[in-house]
Amino acid sequence: MRAAVIDGKEIGAKMRAEVAQEARALAEEGWQPRLVSLMVGEPAAAELYVRNQRRSAESAGVEFEARTYPAETSLEQLIGIVQGLNADPRVNGIIIQRPLPDHIPVKVLQKAVHPLKDVEGMHPASIGNIVYNDLALGPCTAVAAVEILKTLPLKIEGLEVCVIGHSEIVGKPIAFLLMGLGATVTVCHHMTRHVAMHSRAADAVFVAVGKPGLVTGDIIKPGAALIDIGINRVETPDGPRTVGDADFDSCAEVAGWITPVPGGVGPVTVATLMKNAVLATRMQKEQYREMFARTDV
């Protein structure tokens, strides 16, 4: 029996509708959620992300401003810009668009974003909170992948999960998030000797490596959930296509559920960004209230 294809667009739309209600409530209280996107140079990939983010923000009731700076802008200048946005109460979230020019280290720039405005969930403090099972503004792609698993009729407590890929912003956070939910997690990487041994034993497999066709049907347990996070451009006889890290056709013959690429994790990731924007706004509202609350009444 062929796998059920998970509709990420439907999940994302439902999330955005819920976010829109929360955004309206905050706006009525004088706290309209607002994101500012920073792009350095004009990379084509980043322009596509910005368009998708703007469209998602509009449907979620979140204001969105895109700023583009020349490719020669220095790291010091960009840090100054971020610090200005950190201090602006009208800005609730900051997005650093990638790729960045070679002279701008993304980790350094991401650290400059205030943790309460880190809607991408990539500040070291945001990543670190996951280790303590204290999820506030988590990494969007990792959180989205786990949210997709939650929509399936699987009990996560005790679930055997294999995560293929151990990046700081996807693979590792997914592992910690799932462990926090009670799953038993194995993380595979480029030094893992026998990936298939682990993936065949798993009830759910997450893959985020950046290698098209890495996961095939013969290394998947029958009936398992396969969450494909990879995004790769490949050439085919019919022209370039976007594919994931899994060979969709062979995996769909074995898995119980599978995410398509595109249309799987991507739409849920963008919806998670909007959810983080609203959550960040509420957290900032609470902080300002505590900072400026009157104590003489």
Rank of each mutant, 00 (worst) to 15 (best):
I96H: 12
A17T: 13
N86G: 08
W257I: 11
E120A: 09
R67I: 02
L273K: 04
A3K: 03
Y132F: 15
M283L: 15
I81R: 07
P260K: 04
I229D: 02
A25V: 08
E63W: 08
N86L: 05
R67D: 07
G239Q: 07
M39L: 14
I104V: 14
I220E: 05
V243A: 06
L137I: 02
C188T: 02
P267V: 07
I219H: 10
A201N: 14
E290N: 15
G213C: 10
I164V: 15
Y288F: 14
A255R: 01
V131A: 14
D296T: 08
P222C: 01
V170P: 01
V19W: 08
V195E: 10
D296H: 10
Q32K: 13
M191S: 14
I156D: 06
A201W: 11
I258E: 10
G264N: 01
P262L: 03
M179V: 12
P237R: 00
V146R: 05
N276S: 10
F64G: 06
A45L: 13
V5H: 04
S250K: 03
V50R: 12
S250Q: 09
G182I: 05
I169D: 00
D296C: 09
L116G: 11
L109Y: 01
P262E: 03
K117P: 00
N133Y: 03
R16N: 12
N52K: 13
P212S: 06
I79C: 08
N276K: 06
V254I: 13
G30Y: 03
E47P: 02
S250N: 07
G8Q: 00
M15I: 13
T151G: 10
F206P: 00
G239N: 05
Q32T: 12
